[in-house]
Design a protein around this nucleic acid. Structure first.
Length: 346
DNA sequence: AAAGCGGGGGG
DNA sequence: CCCCCAGCTTT
């Protein structure tokens, strides 16, 4: 039996009913694919619903402010996706009259669209036989063919892309691409795959060798670095606090946060007191400092562990460029800040 | 080629 | 604690 025939048969009996499978409109497919980058369906689904409700067309999205897009993206992570999403929406709406490019090569030029996403859109919307290779595809193919080339290397990416391209059903690439991903997501899972009911059980090399749990092979990532974050939650006499927009290169670009004091090691009350006194916003303004969370919050990102303390800075004066308490929740903030705001309840 | 980028969930 | 997720961009 041809690989895609077995796969398509499994898919027709097991596919989930997902909203982006009800359409081949490029705007909706593109939106779903950006949301689902490095994101499980369960986590991305509510965001897809929110974005399609708020922005029913690429023109609606293009006309929004970036701040509105980031606010709707809040909590989903990898915020460059939201910024690139907005950039591409404006480009398609204003330069392409709202019409997305209709082939892999042209799609690849869009900001935020790489090999995977270009292949997904090209196949699903335009029937172009370009194979997708995502985390699911790496897993399915590495097991089925018993391939131990590390998937996070240039060599591995080329090898699996070429293999997927050989296997794709050229008559129906849309179904093939979605089927192999769905199979990886729900059946050929990372842990405890359903080998006992697998339609490929007699052909899977990894299964025959007892190597299913060892594939795919992936080179280990670097260990996360520890950072020490101290946020100054300023409370002014006129019920205002201070939020600052993050700029530059690092995490949470363009999102808001309380004024941040980053220290090289765990900061004491006295450390923060001295730093706060020297802070431009608090210069020559008497305040009362207190620690909000006695237990340090450790917020874990892929590459950073943020040891975080929220410090309450109570002023008996007003401030110049503050944010009134009622509007704090209007700003797009990292989940670390959002959790504090929710608990503190201004 | 390697590093940087989020947050949630499973085992 | 580890790993993984419908990856992309920058260095």
């Amino acid at each position: 039996m041809i690989f895609y025939k077995t796969l398509n048969n499994w898919y027709s009996n097991n596919k989930r009913d997902l909203p982006w499978r009800q359409t081949t409109e490029p705007y909706y497919i593109w939106l779903s694919e950006i949301i689902l980058q490095q994101t499980q369906v369960k986590q991305g689904l509510p965001y897809y619903r929110a974005f399609t409700a708020e922005f029913p067309s690429v023109f609606h999205l293009a006309e929004a402010d970036e701040s509105q897009v980031l606010k709707l993206w809040q909590g989903l992570g990898y915020y460059s996706r939201a910024r690139n999403l907005h950039t591409t929406a404006k480009y398609v709406a204003n330069e392409l009259n709202g019409k997305f490019p209709d082939n892999y090569k042209a799609l690849l030029k869009l900001k935020g669209v790489g090999d995977y996403t270009a292949s997904a859109i090209a196949s699903i919307c335009f029937n172009e036989p370009s194979a997708v290779v995502d985390g699911n595809v790496y897993r399915v193919l590495s097991r089925y063919f018993g391939i131990d080339t590390p998937i996070n290397t240039t060599q591995g990416q080329k090898e699996f892309k070429a293999l997927a391209q050989e296997l794709i059903d050229k008559q129906d690439p849309a179904t093939f691409n979605q089927a192999i991903m769905e199979f990886g997501a729900t059946h050929c899972k990372p842990k405890n795959p359903n080998c006992d009911t697998c339609p490929f059980i007699n052909k899977c090399i990894a299964y025959s060798k007892g190597e299913v749990e060892n594939l795919p092979v992936k080179l280990k990532a670097n260990k996360a670095k520890t950072k020490y974050f101290n946020f100054l939650v300023i409370l002014s006499e006129n019920n205002q606090t201070v939020l600052e927009q993050r700029k530059g290169k690092g995490i949470w670009q363009n999102l808001y946060q309380f004024p941040l004091l980053e220290t090289k090691s765990k900061a004491s009350f006295e450390d923060v007191l001295e730093l706060a006194k020297a802070h431009p916003i608090l210069k020559d303004k008497p305040f009362e400092l207190s620690l909000y969370n006695k237990e340090t919050i450790v917020h874990k990102l892929s590459h950073q562990h943020l040891h975080t303390k929220f410090w309450i800075v109570k002023l008996n004066s007003s401030i110049d460029e503050g944010v009134s308490f009622e509007t704090v929740t209007d700003y797009a903030v990292p989940i670390l800040i959002g959790n504090f705001i929710e608990a503190f309840d201004f």
